[in-house]
């Protein structure tokens, strides 16, 4: 009985501590943001609009773009290639990573090819993207998929390689006979932390590729930024950069919530 009470007290203490730490961080973080905006504002007073607009001008532009529906359109367009590209790249990367991490044979056969292809930057593939798919959402998705693929490949590969042989022995001794059974019952859950970290990193990386993937004329946030940049509409540029960041933050936050739930055993 006393151990239960002890546990309750310790949990309570931990929660209180955690709350006070996150409150502190929220306060300090807000101070940081406010300082940053203040410095920006002061600097903007000394510069013409096309060099550095004031933060307030940017907020107004942001609002206008949002209200006119331009922003929604740009965001939707970007999503039309980001989502398929990220999903395909992530899935293929994880599957291939698991396959090569688990099978010695597949690893021996494909490792040299992997090493050859790995250093090729996604942007170098733009020529292929245009030739194979055209200047459209598919072409952009292709570039994004490449970016997502490698990160997930290495994360899954590493995760599978790192699975303890002892855990596999335990599973075998408890009746798991097939390779497939082992992968399902042990390898995947054991590698899950690394796989999820890979997915999280690839979300960031592939999102950053969105602008570059749209360079050759595919519509989206990146294209909007480039057009505004050509017209020296720096406030629009900054507003859409802000949109990029906010979108990423939201997606990342949602992912982290899912990640924490899935990894509550760690």
């Amino acid at each position: 009985m006393s151990t239960e009470i002890e546990q309750e007290l310790s949990t309570g203490r931990t929660v209180a501590l955690r709350d006070s730490v996150s409150l502190r961080r929220a306060v300090l973080g807000s101070l940081g943001v406010v300082s940053f905006v203040s410095i920006w504002w002061v600097a903007s007073l000394t510069q013409p609009d096309f060099v550095l607009p004031s933060p307030f001008a940017v907020v107004e532009t942001f609002y206008n773009e949002a209200a006119s529906g331009e922003m929604t359109e740009a965001l939707t367009d970007s999503m039309k290639h980001w989502i398929p590209g990220a999903v395909v790249g992530t899935t293929l990367g994880i599957m291939t990573g698991i396959a090569l991490g688990w099978s010695r044979l597949l690893d021996d056969i494909w490792s040299p090819v992997v090493r050859l292809l790995r250093p090729v930057p996604p942007l170098a593939m733009i020529g292929f993207a245009i030739a194979w798919f055209g200047i459209n959402h598919t072409g952009a998705a292709f570039i994004i998929a490449i970016g997502a693929f490698w990160i997930n490949f290495y994360a899954a590969y590493g995760g599978v390689e790192g699975v303890s042989d002892d855990l596999l022995d335990v599973a075998r001794s408890l009746g798991v006979t097939s390779n497939r059974g082992l992968v399902q019952a042990v390898v995947l859950p054991a590698a899950l932390p690394e796989i999820l970290t890979g997915i999280r990193t690839s979300i960031g990386r592939s999102w950053m590729l969105v602008v570059a993937a749209e360079i050759f004329g595919v519509s989206g946030i990146g294209r909007r930024i480039i057009r505004a940049s050509n017209n020296l509409q720096v406030d629009v540029v900054i507003a859409y950069i802000l949109l990029l960041s906010l979108t990423f933050l939201v997606i990342d936050m949602l992912f982290r919530i899912a990640q924490r739930r899935l990894l509550r055993w760690t």
């Binding site: 002892d166 022995d169 335990v170 054991a190 055993w265 760690t266």
Partner: peptide, 9 residues
């Protein structure tokens, strides 16, 4: 086994 090797998940 020696190190129990429970499935942590």
């Amino acid at each position: 086994f020696q190190e129990y090797h429970l499935f942590p998940w």
